[in-house]
Design a protein around this nucleic acid. Structure first.
Length: 424
RNA sequence: GGAGAGGUGGCGGAGUGGUCGAACGCGUCGGUCUCGAAAACCGAAGUACCCGCAAGGGUACCGUGGGUUCGAAUCCCACCCUCUCCGCCA
């Protein structure tokens, strides 16, 4: 959600920001509505002030036994005019809110301008893709092992569901455990076990609603299945005023994520790249405004550390203005090397949302000794997607015989297992 | 699911329909006192929005939304949530 005052002060800056997203200017429409809304509010409040004053007089007159009829009449006529003004104020306010709620965050100044993913800027590349003769894709490997079963997923639930069995199921758990341990022990994140079903307010707070309802699953009684733990973790601080000393607040959770994948029909249909349900370890930081830039780098480093430790080659890119998500001011995507696809694929996305989400969910903080409150900054990042990480391990650690070596850091989590083979 | 109780400021807890943004206590902050601290005493202190260069003024908020009234924390209606007991259940 945007700060109307900031738009008022610098409408051009706002419109330029929207333009970077490929959107038409809106400041003129917003400011016109804003002006009319405030005028209505002022008129409404002045009438109420007069009404309150008169009502006090009436009470006084009655106590003193005086005749209050004249004031009573005045209030009566006032009351006829109040509802229309109030109505006007509400209507304009709702209209303004609806417009505002559907506008994405403005890109940070150092975000590269661009249209789509082709304009993203690679900022580093870590690790060397392994040399593999005729590399297989993850689903070929998994199916050959008999431990990755698209057929069973389809039987139970349809397309975009997969059943993992045996050591692959174990590997998935091990990967998530390893990530959580690393983030909690080394990066100071607090582990959280949040609800996976949330109500409208929470989905609005992180801006899945109102614009992206079609990307979510909803229960028959109105709950939304979380598409990422960003939703419950960030909304933990909704409607609150934190002490500055508590910040930054760092939270992590491994949760299933549910996504309808509306609009991605036909894309990544084979294998586990794009599923309706997958596990992800999420990182969320709540910071003061002056902490968020450094925190963004720190968070990205935490996510990268996972891939480094797993020995997975990756590259990090800064998303261009046109490719960023709705809430983000700036986003780093981490893309892991997939030998089977002979390309880098997104495995993490770390975003600084500034105060955009905080405004929506009214998450504020107060500096020590300070009288006024400020909105916090919120950041979120995958640390990292467990399902895609499993894929990356399979493809990067595949052997000529179709077996999979276990990365060293995961062995303790696999009871010392060295490799996953067809009948091991 | 059945029965009951309740939702007031950071917390606890008052509040005859009018002077209540809200007593009182605790906690918090500033000050006095002290070598320092404690105690004591004095004082400050909700959130958001609107008008205003400012000083300052105004409006709203006592779970949420409606209603009654000149006037609602107080009355009425609906909903939400919490707690207790019973039943059922992972």
């Amino acid at each position: 959600m945007h700060d109307l005052r900031a738009i008022r002060e610098n409408p051009d800056l706002f419109d330029r920001g929207l333009a970077l997203r490929g959107l038409d200017p809106r400041s003129a429409v917003l400011l016109d509505l804003d002006l009319r809304r405030r005028a209505a509010q002022t008129a409404f409040q002045e009438m109420q002030a007069r009404r309150n004053e008169a009502s006090k007089l009436i009470g006084q007159y009655k106590r003193e036994g005086k005749d209050a009829q004249a004031i009573l009449d005045e209030v009566a006529s006032l009351k006829e005019r109040i509802p229309a003004t109030e109505e006007e104020e509400k209507r304009l306010g709702a209209e303004l809110d609806a417009l505002l709620a559907a506008l994405p965050n403005i890109p940070a100044a150092d975000v590269p301008a661009g249209k789509d993913e082709r304009d993203n800027v690679e900022i580093r590349r870590v690790g060397t893709p392994p040399v593999i003769a005729a590399p297989k894709q993850h689903f070929e490997l998994g199916e050959a092992l008999g431990l990755m079963r698209a057929d069973l997923g389809a039987k139970l639930s349809g397309a975009r569901f997969t059943v993992l069995r045996g050591q692959l199921a174990r590997l998935e758990r091990a990967i998530g455990d390893f990530m959580l341990d690393t983030h909690t022990r080394e990066f100071g994140y607090e582990e959280v076990s949040p609800p996976l079903l949330v109500k409208d307010e929470a989905a609005f707070g992180t801006a899945q609603l109102p614009k992206f309802a079609e990307d979510l699953f909803q229960t028959t009684n109105g709950y939304w299945l979380i598409p990422t733990a960003e939703v419950p973790l960030t909304n933990l601080v909704a409607d609150s005023i934190l002490d500055a000393e508590e910040l930054p607040l760092r939270l992590t959770a491994r949760t299933p994520c549910f996504r309808s994948e509306a609009g991605s029909a036909g894309r990544d249909t084979r294998g586990m790249i794009r599923q309706h349900q997958f596990y992800k370890v999420e990182l969320v930081s709540i910071t003061t405004p002056d902490q968020s830039l450094a925190e963004h780098e720190r968070m990205t480093e935490a996510a990268e550390t996972i891939l480094k430790r797993l020995g997975l080659p990756f590259r990090t890119v800064t998303l261009c203005s046109g490719d960023m998500g709705f809430s983000a001011r700036k986003t780093y995507d981490i893309e892991v090397w997939l030998p089977g696809q002979d390309t880098y694929r997104e495995i993490s996305s770390c975003s600084n949302c500034g105060d955009f989400q905080a405004r929506r969910m009214k998450a504020r903080f107060r500096a020590k000794g300070d009288k006024t409150t400020q909105f916090v900054h919120t950041l979120n990042g995958s640390g990292v997607a467990v399902g895609r990480c499993l894929i990356a391990v399979l493809e990067n650690y595949q052997q000529a015989d179709g077996s999979i070596l276990i990365p060293d850091v995961l062995k303790p989590y696999m009871n010392g297992l060295e490799r996953i083979a067809a009948h091991g």
